[in-house]
Design a protein around this nucleic acid. Sequence first.
DNA 1: GGCTGGACATACTAAGTAGTATGTAAACCG
DNA 2: CGGTTTACATACTACTTAGTATGTCCAGCC
Lengths: 208, 208
Amino acid sequence: MRQPARPTKTRNLESSRKEILDTAFLEVYQHGFQGVSVDDIVRKTSLTKGAFYHHFPTKLDLGYAIVDEVLTPLIIARWVSPLDAYDNPLEGIVAQMKALIGECDPALLRTGCPLNNLVQEMAPVDPGFRTRLQRALNLWIDELEVHLKRGQTAGFVRPEVDTRQAAHFIVLLHEGVYGLIKGLGDPGAFRTLFASVKQYLRSIETPS
Amino acid sequence: MRQPARPTKTRNLESSRKEILDTAFLEVYQHGFQGVSVDDIVRKTSLTKGAFYHHFPTKLDLGYAIVDEVLTPLIIARWVSPLDAYDNPLEGIVAQMKALIGECDPALLRTGCPLNNLVQEMAPVDPGFRTRLQRALNLWIDELEVHLKRGQTAGFVRPEVDTRQAAHFIVLLHEGVYGLIKGLGDPGAFRTLFASVKQYLRSIETPS
DNA sequence: GGCTGGACATACTAAGTAGTATGTAAACCG
DNA sequence: CGGTTTACATACTACTTAGTATGTCCAGCC
């Protein structure tokens, strides 16, 4: 058996930081940033408080790192990159929403969208969160617009559609679907909402 | 000068409770339920902690009272009752959204929708909140559907429209508009989003 | 192989937290 | 008008919180 290039050490800066970050993300996702304590987080970790404050100067900095290093990449990986596989981006949007929300574990659905959760909780409270969450949302909108423009030149999206306006609205629809399912506590509401979403997307698609 | 029927007393159960409830609503609206302490609330009141716990057994009970006695009536007063004045409910929905979001103080807009804020923060965390917030949302949807049905029989809403599905979607649009403006931190985003909302509402309206 | 610095662990502090115990004076009732 | 209840105010407690101070041990380097 070959040794790995960087052999497993009993201590590892990168992996420790990642462990804290990932478990913190899950805890914050479920209980909110203000609803989770640093002690809560380290308790769910193999590490201790000393490690936490070695990696993150304050709890707020941890929050910022969650947005930048976990949340934003997650948005791109789940809602943007998959569209590359579709000639018609509208088709991809429908498919992804069905796969990631419609066919998601209902229990998990009740906790909503990690991004939306943080936006609603922290954006008005702290400016550091605000700017970072704005960046994430704008990135999502920008990337969506790129795909819509591509779909427009390829003839799938109606030429008169304002792609920027549509990108905004599609993000709104994602957050709205997540939020309303969470609020109603009923994953079954997805079918009803999804029908309206598809109806809108068809309305900006060139009829075949 | 006539004495009022119930003369002003130095102590008044009803008005004290209302003072606590109203200031608590504003504080929770701005900082979240978990982000506000009982001490914070009483500090913004002319009363003290003794009064607080005389009126509310726990902080959670205060939260429940906020949903039942402040939030739910507010939803009805702002988004449902005004529709009575319109023969065409879709026209009323557009007018109300423009008046209450589009022409609202931008600073206030950044804190979003009080109902949506609480839903995203507390619905997954506490079952007592969950059921109450569900009730509020379902009431909103139910009342909206009544208006849509009325508009349908009056010929303003297309006969083939599923009014229940539309009511769900319209509530989603409200929460989504609030949420995205808050997330983007840009009240100017309203114009963009509002255009899409109007576009949808026109699509379920019978052409004149 | 000893030394140094980094990657943690342990123990602590000061401030805030929900909630309580008790006191007190105003309102009501006879 | 005297007593009881109600509507609070004050002072306190037990606990949790973010953050710190200090100790320790492993890893790489000379």
